[in-house]
Design a protein around this nucleic acid. Structure first.
Lengths: 116, 116
DNA sequence: ACAATATATGTCGCCCAACGACATATGCGC
DNA sequence: GCGCATATGTCGTTGGGCGACATATATTGT
């Protein structure tokens, strides 16, 4: 799973959101670094729906236009948790190999028992 | 940067390695989860060389065959550090949001560092 | 009144990293 | 000899992300 997709799922982790709100939330999550384009967004939403990682939470009509609220499914929640854990492990290993120990830069990855 | 590329750079973080050794190292790093195909490997190596993130450390001849040892460049090292940090932050945010969901309703999700 | 921007959803074609399959060659153990 | 690990490489396909475009309303500014 690529980062944009992971960010999308993350944006739905705390509460259901509609498309545009997702892009805003992603910008917030990534500290302004990532702007998800609509081409990526709606393509990903369709794909994730098909994969069952998200689901349509509710559909409401605002100003005569349909607004679809997406929510993380149970499967999506598990998947996101797994991806996040795996990603964190990868990042930790990279930092460890680079020789960045507990200097305070990225969290506090104190070298636990697993040295290899 | 995608994960396979990041894993490749990570495999070169502690010492220079040749292609096949990189694939083995990646398998080790990922705890047996990721097997980098040669199609991905040599394509990525070429690309990373062109980008200046890695460089040819040494070329030796073993059993009449050329063996090229790749090393992380300074730029690659910085890049890897940055990517790792950013990835860790993303993963942390995902975990945090998965952890606090449902408790705060919508309004002020206080950033409690209960996760991890 | 008009223009620009924010909100909001969507389509389409291109690009590139990753992938799978294939090709090639040597050394080693059985 | 045969299969496997070691070792490097090519090639066509796929799929996710990107950029550009299309559309429509509400709000804010001049």
């Amino acid at each position: 799973m690529q980062e944009p997709t992971l960010l999308l799922l993350t944006a739905l982790a705390d509460q259901p959101r509609h498309g545009y709100a997702i892009t805003q939330e992603i910008r917030k999550i990534s500290d302004g670094q990532v702007t998800m384009r609509t081409g990526t967004l709606y393509g990903a939403l369709e794909r994730l729906l098909k994969q069952g990682l998200i689901e349509v939470h509710r559909e409401e009509v605002v100003d005569g236009r349909l607004r679809r609220l997406y929510a993380l499914s149970d499967e999506g929640r598990e998947r996101l948790a797994g991806e996040a854990e795996r990603l964190a492990a990868t990042a930790r290993e990279a930092s460890r190999r680079l020789g960045v120990f507990g200097s305070g830069a990225a969290g506090s990855p104190r070298p636990s028992a697993a040295t290899s």
